[in-house]
Design a protein around this nucleic acid. Structure first.
Length: 898
RNA sequence: ACGGGCGUGGCGAAAUUGGUAGACGUACCAGACUUAGGAUCUGGCGCCGUGAGGCAUGGGGGUUCGAGUCCCUUCGCCCGUACCA
């Protein structure tokens, strides 16, 4: 995943995934593959704009500077990127195509019959010929049904308004997450616990006109496609939950109110996943936020209802979440009629029903749902058992589906499956409901009231949006002098002079969200310079999709979902070949900060006193204050006291109470942040120990997927490895000692054990164990005093994915041409060199093969042939040579080449 | 509450399908070479035991010739979602 180029530069957590992909890229190249391993920058975004607001500096300038830093840092770590393919989402040559894809979305609708996106032009043709009755397409709920005559008689305005209900991107008046602190709207995945993910500002619900993406059209394919990708279960499950598909039925209840008004709804529709419990309905609950509430309220209940609605509105998101268990609600005075048994059912308001999900109305079945049971118990509503297997109705609901139905009219005596089918059929026959699939996923808001993003290639005529002409792309971001919203509350683009299409029509003033540019960028890598297409068909069909994608799991319901959506859309258009854009995904674990502390003795603070710091294990003997200390002055938790004295003016005269002559610091794992002085910049490490050591160490730290605190305590080991490798080539006096002699079997064994292990581990993306293997190999060769060119040359190739710099240097020292290390030169494993491998023979117990007995080949007495009974072999072996150890390995046969 | 994952020495961790648990690295201890060492090399390093040996993968139980690995149960931790009808 490409990075957002932040002002802080690369920190030590960033390269983790990049090192891993670089290793795989280099390894695959060694094996002869053609590898596309690029890098780019997600360079539109909020921080650069916030900075611009504060300083007046144009975001393009800050972004450019940051990217320069990033590139310098990345190059320093030695990534083998093909920089000629670099992309930047804020480059107009790039966002031209982001805008182009937006236009395609505007020009397409989702056809349920074809189960793919089709051209709006085709839809118009259908409307002209046969209206929309026969059209089975994804559209807004309120889309009217019309005939071809009606369509053809419509004004341009009305026709365009209707088409907007079908387009895959459309302006929509909807409730959005408005963040006053940031002055923009946020997507659901950008809001965490009622505050903005970035900045932590409060977020409120507000009705606004916004561009939206009809991602819900792809809900099913987004769920189904998860079966075909090699992603972690946790991540797939997260996406499934986010999409939240539930299968059930919608049922329409007719309203019975003593005081009907013109705006009183005639029916209330509910969605239920348990239509089989319909005979157990004893009340209905609707969300207090629904517009129809006042029209369902009787005069007697008016006061109570208004009070309740007010109370609900006054409660913050946090209050609501913390009081989930508490039952609250109020009776409206009105009723609905259960269409199955004509029972009169009271309508209540309660805040456990969400306005935003389904229809905002729920049928209450206390016998089958715990929340409904709580509600019914609280308000003394009847609890009707509907299954003969249900029991203990006095203490809790029973949501199992076992048993036969009772008290249930047409489904009495049936089981769950049959009942559901019968009821759904009945609903559809009578026209009072239907089988329905409900999603939690909302259409994605696609506008940000911001400057630093892609302009939307749209202008407005008579209040309706029109696309600009394709040849006019890119629609470049205009220059403005201030980055705040206008005085009238319009987005910053409202400040741009002459920001009008053909000098006449208003352009869209909001820009695209951060995820626009990142939802297709991997295709641009395939053909980064193309000016005619976002990438040529030839290059797309050659590279197809991402084979290995590495990045944080925080993108589960954002980038990774939107990218899948856009990819499926592009596939529908026949522009890309694969349904899923990333076949294999690894979520790298977050690198946490590891803070170090010093402990200042409280009594040493004050005028004229020198501050005294006490070492960690002695601190309990004093009253102390713990102070964050810069981790860059600490090595293996031992403080560099001189550096510490020079760190801050008030510490110049610091005194220390040491233990064993050292100052030991305390440790805590926290988030990496400047204020905690625990941010480790890779530059410092590269200076100290070199890029190869950093790469090696980051991989050695533990499994890639695992979150772990950054800890440089073990980095010396990786550095020592590099030095040990060097000593295989040079003696203590600095003389080159490699000789062109034939390797011994022992040396070959060491090398080939390593080749086998490295290859196996890299094929299963076990990055950390490879480092161990390399270390063992170098240690063993050191013990053997091996300085044979044939061995060392292969070793160099083997370690080159991890430590490319030193490998390249040693490669040329061995007399090879620089740069030739990368071509199909991965050493071939020869099992014949594993001369100590065991032979295994089956042992039978009670006539059944239960085990194999194994022993080393060199212990094999000469007169034994394969196939002789195990017991006999063991006997002969015992006679021939005393065994050190006998290992019995059942049900396992290893093929060995002696 | 639900979903996903995890629990192994002082620490980071290995153990690919059930098959010699703790590889490798750190830290620590001892020794060698050294004016010196934050260099290098050698040896030791799960726990109990002088020893032979015994006990050990959060706890308890099970399957198996054999369990860190599979099953049940329980405790603890992390991540995600949160009244989704």
């Amino acid at each position: 995943m490409f990075p957002y180029p932040s002002g802080a530069g690369l920190h030590v957590g960033h390269p983790l995934g990049y090192i891993a992909t670089d290793i795989i890229a280099r390894y695959k190249r060694l094996k002869g593959f053609n590898v596309l391993h690029p890098m780019g920058f997600d360079s539109f975004g909020l921080p650069a704009e916030q900075y611009a607001i504060q300083t007046g500096q144009h975001p393009a300038i800050t972004t450019e500077e940051n990217i320069t830093t990033y590139i310098r840092q990345l190059k320093q770590i030695g990534f083998s990127y093909d920089w000629s393919r670099e992309v930047r989402t804020s480059d107009s040559k790039y966002y031209k195509w982001t805008q182009w894809i937006f236009m395609q979305l505007f020009n397409h609708y989702y056809d349920k019959e074809a189960n793919k996106a089709l051209k709006i032009a085709d839809l118009i043709e259908k409307f002209t010929k046969e209206g929309n009755k026969s059209v089975n397409a994804v559209c807004d709920e309120d889309t009217p049904v019309f005939t071809s005559e009606e369509w053809n008689a419509m004004s341009e305005f009305d026709q365009q308004s209707i088409l907007l209900k079908y387009r895959l991107t459309y302006p929509d008046e909807s409730v959005v997450n408005w963040c006053p602190g940031l002055g923009t709207v946020l997507a659901n995945d950008e809001v965490k616990d009622g505050v903005s993910e970035r900045g932590g500002f409060p977020v409120e619900q507000k009705k606004m006109k916004q561009w939206a993406m009809r991602i819900t059209a792809y809900a099913d394919r987004l769920i189904d496609g998860l079966n075909d990708v090699d992603w972690s279960d946790a991540l797939k499950e997260q996406q499934r939950n986010w999409i939240g598909r539930s299968t059930g039925a919608s049922v329409r209840f007719s309203v019975l109110t003593p005081n009907p008004q013109p705006l009183t709804p005639k029916n209330i529709e509910v969605f239920t996943t348990r239509v089989d419990t319909i005979y157990g309905v004893s009340f209905m609950v609707i969300a207090p936020e629904l517009e129809s509430v006042p029209f369902l309220t009787t005069p007697e209940q008016k006061e109570a209802v208004e009070e309740y609605v007010k109370w609900v509105a006054s409660r913050s998101e946090l209050d609501r979440m913390s009081e989930v268990k508490k039952v609250s609600g109020v009776f409206t005075g009105s009723y609905v009629i259960n269409p199955f048994n004509d029972e009169k059912v009271p309508i209540y308001l309660a805040d456990y029903v969400l306005a935003g999900y389904g229809t905002g109305a729920v049928m209450g079945v206390p016998s089958g749902d715990q929340r409904d049971w709580n509600f019914a118990t609280h308000f003394n509503l009847p609890i009707i058992p509907i299954l003969d297997a249900q029991k203990e109705m006095e203490t809790q609901a029973d949501n199992t589906k076992e048993g036969k139905y009772i008290n249930s009219g047409i489904i009495n005596g049936m089981g769950y499956k049959e009942a559901t089918k019968t009821l759904t059929t009945y609903l559809e026959e009578k026209g009072i409901g239907k089988g329905k699939i409900q999603y939690r996923l909302r259409n994605a808001v696609f506008s940000r009231q911001r400057y630093w993003g892609e302009p939307v290639p749209v202008y407005f005529k008579h209040g309706l949006p029109y696309l600009i002409v394709e040849s006019e792309l890119p629609l470049e971001l205009p220059v403005i002098d201030k980055y705040l919203p206008t005085e009238t509350g319009e987005p910053p683009l409202g400040r741009a002079e002459n920001w009008k299409y053909k000098g006449e029509y208003e352009y869209e003033l909001s820009t695209m969200p951060g995820w626009a540019g990142s939802s297709w960028y991997w295709y641009r890598y395939m053909d980064a310079q193309n000016e005619q297409e976002f990438a040529s068909q030839e290059s797309i069909n050659y590279w197809k999709a991402i084979d290995l994608y590495i990045g944080g799991s925080e993108h589960a319901t954002g980038h990774l979902l939107y990218s899948r959506f856009w990819n499926k859309f592009l596939k529908d258009l026949g522009l890309v070949p694969e349904e899923e854009f990333a076949k294999k995904l690894i979520n790298q674990g977050m690198i946490q900060g590891r803070s170090n502390f010093v402990y200042r003795v409280k009594s040493s603070v004050g005028e004229g006193k020198n501050p005294i710091f006490v070492s960690y294990h002695l601190k309990d003997q004093y009253e102390t204050t713990s102070i964050h200390v810069d981790v860059n002055m600490v090595n293996n938790d031992i403080l560099d006291t001189n550096a510490f004295k020079n760190w801050r003016e008030d510490f110049v005269n610091a005194e220390f109470i040491l233990e064993a002559g050292k100052y030991v610091c305390g440790v805590e794992v926290e988030k990496m942040s400047k204020s905690k002085y625990n941010v480790v910049n890779p530059d410092i490490l590269v200076d100290k120990v070199g890029a190869d050591t950093l790469r090696l160490y980051e991989m050695f730290l533990g499994p890639l997927e695992q979150a772990k605190p950054w800890n440089t305590n073990g980095i010396d080991g990786s550095f020592r490895f590099i030095k040990k490798v060097w000593r295989l080539f040079y003696d203590d006096l600095g003389n080159f000692k490699v000789k062109d002699e034939a390797p011994t079997p022992a040396e070959l064994k060491v090398l080939h054990t390593a080749i086998k292990k490295v290859e196996e581990d890299l094929e299963r993306y076990s990055f950390n164990t490879v480092v161990s293997t390399l270390m063992i190999c170098v240690n063993d060769l050191g013990s053997l005093k091996c300085a044979k060119k044939a061995i060392l040359q292969e070793l160099v190739i083997l370690m080159s994915p991890y430590t490319p710099h030193i490998a390249e240097e040693l490669w040329t020292l061995l007399g090879n041409d620089a740069g030739t290390i990368s071509y199909a030169s991965f050493p071939k494993f020869n099992p014949g060199y594993l001369v100590e491998a065991n032979f295994e023979y089956p042992i039978s117990i009670n006539g059944k093969v239960r085990a194999n007995i194994s022993f080393p080949t060199d212990a094999l007495p000469a007169d034994i042939e394969a196939g002789v009974l195990a017991n006999e072999i063991v006997q002969k072996w015992l006679e021939g040579k005393a065994p050190k150890k006998v290992i019995v390995v059942p049900k396992r046969i290893v093929n060995v080449v002696p």
